[in-house]
C-alpha cells in the first residue's frame, strides 16, 4: 500500500458534487503538484486528507491507517500531517515563536525549552530567525507564510499539504516562499501542493496532476505534463496560465 492512498473519493457540498471519485497514490518522499481551474476541487481534495473536510464516499489511508477508522483520534492524525494555508492563518495574539511552539507543547507535550530550541532552528531554516519575538502583523506576507511553514514543520509531520501557499503574496515575495518549499522537497519531505506556480512544479515535482470539475483529468511527470499534455482541457488550462 502506498504512503497516502486515496480510493474512489467522493464529496458533496449539499447537492454540489465537488469530488467525483478521486483515486491517487502518493509515495513517501514524493512531491505532488495539483493544479486546475478554481472550483475544480483541488483544495477540497487535500483538505480531506487531514479531515478538515469530511467526505461521503471512498477511503483514504495515511501511512497504512484508514483516516476514517472508528476510534481513530483525529487530533493525532492531524498532528502527523502539516498544512499551510493560502492566508497563512497565524495566531495574531502570539509572537512568532509562540505560534510555532503552541502545538508541540500542547499536543505533543514537548517541554518549552526544547520546543523553543526547535522553533528557532526552524526559523533559521526558513531564513527569519531574527523575527522570533515579533508579532505576525509586524511581518511581511512572505515572512508570515514562512512562519506558517515553520509552524507546520514544528510538529515533525510525515507529510505536508500546501493550499495555494503563494496566491495571497505580492510577486516579489513568492520566491522566498517557493525557495523554502524547494528546500523541503529536496530534503525528502512528502508534499502535496495545490499551486499555480508552474516553475516550481517543473523544478521539483515528481508528478503533476490536473483536476477539472472534481476529477483528475491528467497526470504525469512534469517533463511530460508540460511538453506533451494529452487532454484538450489540460492544454487549454496550460495555455491560459503559462
Amino acid at each position: 500500500m502506498a504512503f497516502i492512498e486515496i480510493n474512489g473519493l467522493h464529496k458533496w457540498f449539499g447537492s454540489f458534487h465537488v469530488l467525483r471519485g478521486i483515486t491517487e497514490q502518493v509515495e513517501r518522499g514524493e512531491v505532488l503538484v495539483i493544479c486546475g481551474p478554481s472550483g475544480s476541487g483541488k483544495s477540497t481534495l487535500i483538505r480531506c486528507l487531514n479531515r478538515l473536510e469530511e467526505y461521503q464516499k471512498g477511503t483514504v489511508h495515511f501511512d497504512g491507517q484508514d483516516i476514517h477508522a472508528r476510534g481513530l483520534d483525529v487530533n493525532s492524525l492531524r498532528a502527523e500531517i502539516g498544512i499551510v494555508f493560502q492566508q497563512f492563518n497565524l495566531y495574531p495574539h502570539l509572537t512568532v515563536l509562540k505560534n510555532i511552539t503552541l502545538a508541540p507543547i500542547k499536543v505533543r507535550g514537548t517541554v518549552r525549552a526544547e520546543a523553543e530550541e526547535t522553533a528557532l532552528a526552524l526559523l533559521e531554516r526558513v531564513g527569519i530567525h531574527d523575527q522570533a519575538h515579533k508579532y505576525p502583523a509586524e511581518l511581511s506576507g512572505g515572512q508570515q507564510q514562512r512562519v506558517a511553514i515553520a509552524r507546520a514543520l514544528a510538529m515533525k509531520p510525515k507529510a505536508l499539504l500546501f493550499d495555494e501557499p503563494t496566491s495571497a503574496l505580492d510577486p516579489e515575495m513568492i520566491n522566498e516562499v517557493l525557495n523554502v518549499m524547494k528546500d523541503l522537497a529536496r530534503d525528502g519531505m512528502t508534499m502535496l501542493c495545490v499551486t499555480h506556480e508552474m516553475g516550481f512544479a517543473r523544478e521539483v515535482a515528481d508528478r503533476v496532476i490536473f483536476m477539472d470539475a472534481g476529477e483528475v483529468v491528467e497526470q504525469g511527470p512534469p517533463s511530460e505534463f508540460f511538453t506533451n499534455p494529452k487532454h484538450e482541457r489540460t492544454r487549454m488550462f496550460l495555455k491560459e496560465i503559462l
Partner: peptide, 28 residues
Amino acid sequence: KNQLEASRATGLSFLQAYRFVILPQAFR
C-alpha cells in the same frame, strides 16, 4: 473561522483551540 481551522489542523482539540487561540483573541 480560519483561526479555529488553523489550530485544529495542528492537532489541538476543540477545547484547546478555544482556550489558547479563540478566547484570548475574543477577550482582547
